[in-house]
Simulated scan of single mutants.
Amino acid sequence: MTPSSSLSPGSLLHHLRQTAPLVHNITNHVAMTPTANTLLAIGASPLMAHAQEEAQDISTISAALSINIGTLSQSWIEAMQLAAMYAQREGKLWVLDPVGIGASRLRHYACRVLLEHHPSVIRANASEVLALAGETSQSRGVDSGDDSEDAVDRASRAAISLARTQNCVVAMTGAIDVVTDGKRVIRVRGGHALMGRVTAMGCALSSVVAAFLAASLDGHDDTLQATAAALACYAEAGETAGQSVEGPGSFVPRFLDALYTLDADSPLLASRLELTDVT
């Protein structure tokens, strides 16, 4: 991949750290603290707010929005709708994380109403992509059960179709991440197996994607490349952290340190990306 210098992962990371975008998060109870710590480590500013009464005010001051449906209630769904509506109205980019959409009808409903507000990015695992695209999946609650090579290929095709249908970017994360706008596909390699053994890693990644979307708006708006840049930085930090840990307990602090010390000038970031056109 040969992105323009202004849209390379390193340049976007550098700009993110300079601007420290305020990211509004409506996320689940489990993910709030890990997400806030992850955003702070990479250089963004987190804000957790789910009250309907302040949705408009928060939308006005924030640079981007991340919505995660991990722990739902009807009042939270209504707050998510309001936040997404205001973000769309004010031209703010936002990310939908359809956590465990295949687990219940309530989650399907929440995603259906949120899609009406046109997310900029959908960040999901293979099972969630398949379920969101209306295909059968092997979801196990919030975990992906579609990890075989054939299932990932099927989910990749579903991601491309979903991106076209929703006119957005779909970031399907797994052993190899697939990011697509329906016309182009970027594969992102890296990370570490322990990232799947720590709660809220994916949830926090969705918010990091939102931070990179905010950082991309300074005169060069390419949602696909900004999303891929976020995933490349995450993968680099995960791989670095995994080099000297004994298990998931020691992985978390090492991962936060790796994000914090991530070298924006490292050529490894761009080398993790492989861009192809959809045939």
Rank of each mutant, 00 (worst) to 15 (best):
L7H: 03
L12A: 02
H14T: 12
Q18G: 14
N25E: 11
P34C: 12
T35L: 02
L39P: 02
I42V: 15
P46C: 04
P46N: 04
A49V: 13
A51P: 03
E53A: 12
E54H: 11
S75I: 07
E78P: 01
A79V: 01
Q81L: 13
A83T: 08
Y86Q: 09
A87P: 10
W94C: 10
V99Y: 02
G102E: 05
A103M: 07
R107G: 03
Y109E: 15
L114D: 05
E116V: 00
H118V: 04
S120Y: 04
S120E: 06
S120L: 03
S120I: 09
I122V: 15
N125L: 05
A126L: 07
G134P: 11
E135Y: 14
Q138N: 15
R140K: 15
D146K: 04
S148A: 13
R157K: 14
A158K: 10
A159C: 12
N167F: 11
M172N: 04
A175R: 15
D177Y: 11
V178N: 05
V179W: 05
G182W: 07
K183L: 14
V185D: 01
A200V: 09
A200P: 06
M201K: 00
C203S: 14
C203F: 06
S207L: 06
A210M: 09
L213K: 04
A214V: 12
L217M: 15
D221P: 06
D221Q: 12
T227P: 01
Y234L: 08
A235E: 00
G238A: 13
E239R: 14
G242T: 06
Q243G: 10
V245S: 06
V245Y: 07
V245T: 13
G249N: 10
P253E: 09
A258T: 03
Y260I: 02
S266P: 02
S266T: 01
S271M: 09
L275A: 11
D277R: 10
T279L: 10
